[in-house]
Simulated scan of single mutants.
Amino acid sequence: MTGEPNSGAEGHWRALERLYSSAPVNSKFASSLEVTGEGAARITFDITEDVFHAAGAAHGTVYFKMLDDAAFYAANTLVTDRFLLTTSFNLHFTKPVRDGTIIAEGRWVSGRRRVFVAESRLIDGEGDEIGRGTGTFMKSRIPLSGLPGYAE
């Protein structure tokens, strides 16, 4: 990696952050991605009533989305040419969340060629883990460079 901010790994990480922001689904959520290093990503998400289930807490789809995205982007830091696809994801809910900001922390675990494994966890505003997941991701045929948002 050179010292230039938009080259090498740093450039790839910033491009992944732009890709996250440009995805139409992410306009529905108050969230942002930060790639924090090779094999590591963090998503900040604000819980509001519009993501509640009938009993007044965040719906499980929110847990899945944040856990999947954090693990996905952690794994995609290691792949500079192709978009990864989620092939499986296991998650565990440990605590309901009703308001505030949650953080999804993703971490690459293994794989460097075609299949990647990454894990993630959700942390609430009190510092408690509220969910955990592990995903398997596979290289697709979709070039990152051709995706809106990835290129500046």
Rank of each mutant, 00 (worst) to 15 (best):
L16D: 01
V62Q: 05
Y73F: 15
T2L: 04
A75M: 05
F52S: 04
S32W: 12
E105T: 02
S110W: 15
G149W: 02
N76C: 10
A55Y: 15
E4I: 10
F45M: 10
E17F: 14
G100R: 00
T2V: 07
E38C: 08
R107D: 07
T36F: 08
A15K: 04
Y150H: 03
N90V: 09
A30V: 11
H12Y: 02
R132E: 07
I142S: 09
L19G: 02
V79N: 09
G11L: 08
A54R: 11
K28A: 14
S120N: 06
I47R: 00
S22W: 15
T2Q: 08
G135W: 09
T80F: 11
E126D: 13
E119P: 01
Y150S: 03
S145C: 08
A75R: 09
G127D: 02
P96C: 02
A57T: 11
S27M: 08
I43A: 07
T77F: 05
Y150F: 14
R18A: 09
G60P: 05
G56D: 00
S21H: 13
F64W: 13
R141T: 13
P148N: 08
A30Y: 10
T44I: 10
F89C: 07
V51G: 04
D81C: 06
M1W: 13
L85S: 08
T136W: 05
E10S: 12
E49N: 12
A71G: 10
G111N: 13
I103E: 11
T44C: 09
L78P: 04
S110R: 15
G135Q: 05
A74C: 06
S140M: 06
F45L: 10
T36A: 07
L19R: 00
T101I: 06
E4P: 04
E119M: 06
F89K: 08
S22P: 04
F93R: 02
V62Y: 01
T94Q: 14
S22R: 11
T80R: 15
G3V: 15
S145G: 13
I130L: 04
T44K: 13
H92R: 12
F52M: 03
G125A: 13
D124E: 04
P143F: 02
F52R: 01
T101V: 15
L67T: 01
G125F: 01
R112C: 07
T44P: 04
E17P: 05
F29L: 13
F137P: 00
I103R: 13
L84T: 01
